[in-house]
Each structure stands twice: as structure tokens, then as C-alpha cells.
Simulated assay, not measured.
Amino acid sequence: MTENEERTGWMAPAPGVRESQRIPVAFWGFHDRFKRAYRKYAELHLGDERLAGRVVHTVFLNLLRGWPRLMEEASPAASAWAHLKEAVDDVLIAQGRDSAMAETAVFHRVARAVLEDARDEFAAMESSVGLYPAIARLPGRQFDVMVLHYVLGCTTAKTAAIMGITEATVRSHRLHARNRIGRELGLAPEPEHPED
């Protein structure tokens, strides 16, 4: 990066790209920070790694096109997260199907259990069959917190950053979601433990 690029916050276009197509350095930071989580979230819902990659790529292109406007938002991360969720929902609606989250999450849990050799894969699948559909029935933000934190393994801080909310809000949504799931599955509510 040149001194001028550092000062202006914009990177020069790649060779063969017109001068008007400069990409803000801040965009690349945002992209690097959230791309992996966005892709894992999309793949969880779409059940297709390649399709998830295309959807996330399109989302980031749209974010880049509206970058100045996005940076004026009160919470750019929350706006970008909403855009990702809308894009995933649009694909599911266009394909006339529901989210593959329950099946995909069960697969990931079983694979993790087998790889870690921590528990029998059938026991892992059996316990997941009731849990993941219960997660899928949660209200929007509680659902996102549970998927990001428990299914995709994001920390409280990372979940807050991705969703554009505070860590306290993440903990609150997590506690309410766990209590709701516990009631639905007939389990005693547990107090919130600081996991990270």
C-alpha cells in the first residue's frame, strides 16, 4: 500500500481495472473479518457449499457497491448481516424450500463427534434431532445467536461483531433462547455460564 493509499483509505485499482473502480481498504478489512462466518452461515442454511460461496460473494459485491451508504449506517455490521440473511432467504424462496439448517447441523455435529471420538455418532445424531429443530423455531435474533455461537462455534465477541450488537445483547438472547429450548425439550433451565 502506498503512502497516498494509507492516507486516503482507498487502494489503487488492480492492473487493467479503471481508476473509478477503487476499493476502500476498510472494505477489505470488513470482508476478511466476516467472510468466513457469512459463508458458514449460508452453507448451513443452503446445504450447498458452492451455492453458499456464490451467495456470499454476491452479498459482498452488493456491500461494496453501497459501501459509502453502509458506512453511514448506525451499525454497518448489523445492516450487512441483515443483507446476508435476506440473500439466503431469497435463494430458499426462489428454490421453494426450507432451510437445510437442521439436517446440515446434525451432519456437522455427527462429523465432529466422530472426528473427536468423543461420543458415539448415533447418540450425537439422536440428541441433535430434537435440538436443531427447536433452534430453528426460535425468534430471529435468538436463532442467529444460537446458530453463530453453538452451531458455528463463534465466541460471544465474534457473534456480537457479526450481528452488529453488543456482547451483553448476545448473552441475553442466548439465555432466553436456551430457556425457551429447554422448556420445549422438557429440560430444566440452566443459568447462563460465561463461555468465553
Rank of each mutant, 00 (worst) to 15 (best):
H57Y: 09
H108R: 15
A87K: 03
Q142K: 10
I93L: 10
T156D: 07
W81Y: 07
E73T: 02
D98H: 11
I23P: 09
R174C: 10
L44D: 04
D117Y: 08
A111H: 15
R178E: 10
V59L: 00
S128R: 02
V147A: 11
R18Y: 14
E184W: 09
A52N: 04
L148Q: 05
I93S: 04
E126F: 09
P68T: 07
L70V: 00
F107M: 07
H57F: 09
E49M: 07
M163F: 03
A94Y: 08
R33Y: 00
A100R: 15
V151A: 15
E126H: 08
G153F: 05
E6C: 10
P13I: 11
L46T: 00
Y132D: 02
L175P: 01
A14Y: 11
S79I: 04
V151M: 07
L138Y: 15
A77Q: 12
L64I: 01
P133H: 03
N4D: 13
A100F: 11
T2F: 12
R178N: 07
E73P: 00
A82G: 00
N4H: 15
P68V: 05
R141G: 01
S172G: 04
P24K: 12
G16N: 10
M146R: 13
I181D: 09
I165H: 01
N62K: 10
M146Y: 12
R174T: 12
M125G: 06
V145S: 05
T166F: 02
T58A: 12
I23L: 13
H83Q: 05
A78S: 05
Q95D: 06
E86Y: 02
W81H: 02
W10I: 06
V129F: 11
A74S: 05
A14M: 14
V170T: 12
Q21M: 14
A111V: 07
T155S: 15
K158W: 04
M125S: 11
R50D: 07
D48Q: 00
L148N: 08
Y150S: 07
K85Q: 12
P13A: 14
R137I: 01
P191H: 10
T155M: 01
L84P: 00
L175G: 05
R137V: 04
N4A: 13
A168F: 07
L187H: 13
W67P: 02
Q142D: 07
R109C: 04
R180E: 11
P76A: 08
I165A: 03
G53V: 06
E167C: 06
D32H: 01
E190L: 12
P76L: 11
R39S: 08
T58F: 08
H31V: 01
P24Y: 06
D117F: 14
L187C: 02
E73M: 08
T8V: 04
E184K: 11
P194A: 13
D144N: 10
Y38T: 13
A100K: 14
W28V: 05
A87G: 00
A80W: 10
A118K: 14
K85G: 03
V55T: 12
I181F: 12
E5Y: 12
R112L: 08
T104S: 11
G164F: 06
G164P: 03
V110A: 01
H173D: 10
V91R: 14
E103G: 09
K85S: 02
L51N: 05
T2K: 13
P191R: 14
A100P: 03
Y41N: 04
Y132W: 13
A160N: 06
V55G: 14
E49C: 09
D117S: 15
F107D: 04
V88A: 00
K85C: 09
